[in-house]
Amino acid sequence: MAEYIAVFLEKLHQKGKAKLTIQAYQQDLLQLLGVINYLKLDVGSLERNHILYALKQLSAKGQSPKSIARHLSAWRQFCAFLVEESILEYNPCQGVKPPKLPNRLPKALTVENTQLLLDNVQSHNVLEVRDKAIFELMYSSGLRLSEVTHLDIHDLSFSEGIVKVLGKGSKERIVPVGQTALTALKNYLVVRAGSETQKALFTSRLGSRLSNRQIQNRLVRWSELAGSDRRVTPHMFRHSFASHMLQESGDLRAVQELLGHSNLNTTQIYTSLDFKHLATIYDQAHPRAKRKQK
């Protein structure tokens, strides 16, 4: 089987896969090779029950669900290659499900830390005025980074206090913009760089459309200046918007619409963000939870 692994890895190299990616595939496939050797199998006789046995071995060694899922993905692609080479009649990984991964809670800032960061953004020059407008808009309307960089000037309506956003799947939605963000945007448009033909709302100092990376780098700079003890990303503003809105309103459907989620389950994860807040509400509201006054 080792020779087939070598050919498979070479094909990955020819497809332009990164060196570290190929090394990860190699390590995952060596795990499968170890099981095949232990069971004294020919690669052509590999079956579904052997894959399941190999997965159980990974679990017994304490591998995390994420690691096991990665192994299975590598094995599935390798077995597909063996089918193409007529070494296997079918892919034994087909239909084998990886272990269920635990839900990751989105990383959100507290209300206080969000306010501190936004208030720390200065407005002494064009770039700072622009940065403040970007960050205020992201937090005000819960926009994705890509949605921000794709905004054109005509997408913004000051009279109605809304912004038209092109989200995932090219789905358009209309989102309210708060007064603080509108003020920051008005200040920015006065000094915005760019020619009359440049439609982009947010531009670089040279007048070109701002990229995702440029916004990410500027936010890192401002979070460091604000003394943040964690790396703040643009998506944290979206997560913070969602959790803060949900905490105050409790309206899951409304937050779903504002975020542009097609599935309510995607929005529902934000209900787990602030258990302390929920616990406080529980203590105050539930008849059997109220503590006796001393």
Results as ranks from 00 to 15, higher is better:
L278D: 10
D28R: 11
L219K: 01
V148I: 14
A226D: 02
Y4D: 12
I215E: 01
K168F: 04
K294W: 08
F275Q: 14
I215G: 01
E84D: 15
E85C: 10
Q14S: 11
T233N: 03
V175L: 07
R291S: 09
L166R: 09
L225D: 11
Q214A: 15
Q14K: 10
L9G: 03
H286E: 09
S45R: 09
R144E: 01
G260C: 06
R104G: 04
S86V: 13
I51F: 10
S223Y: 07
M236K: 02
L117S: 01
F237E: 00
T267H: 07
P234R: 09
V190R: 15
A80E: 15
I87G: 04
E85R: 14
D119L: 08
G194Y: 05
P234W: 04
Y38E: 15
S211C: 05
R205L: 15
N125K: 02
D152N: 15
N265S: 15
F81Q: 05
R173C: 04
V191H: 07
L259N: 04
Q284P: 02
R173L: 04
A289T: 01
G34N: 13
D119C: 05
S146A: 15
V96K: 11
M236R: 00
Q23M: 12
Y53I: 11
T280P: 06
D131A: 06
R230P: 02
P65W: 04
L72T: 03
E147G: 05
V35Q: 08
F78K: 06
Q122R: 07
T110E: 08
L46A: 01
N49V: 14
Y38M: 10
E224F: 00
T21A: 02
G62D: 07
V175A: 03
L246C: 06
Q179R: 13
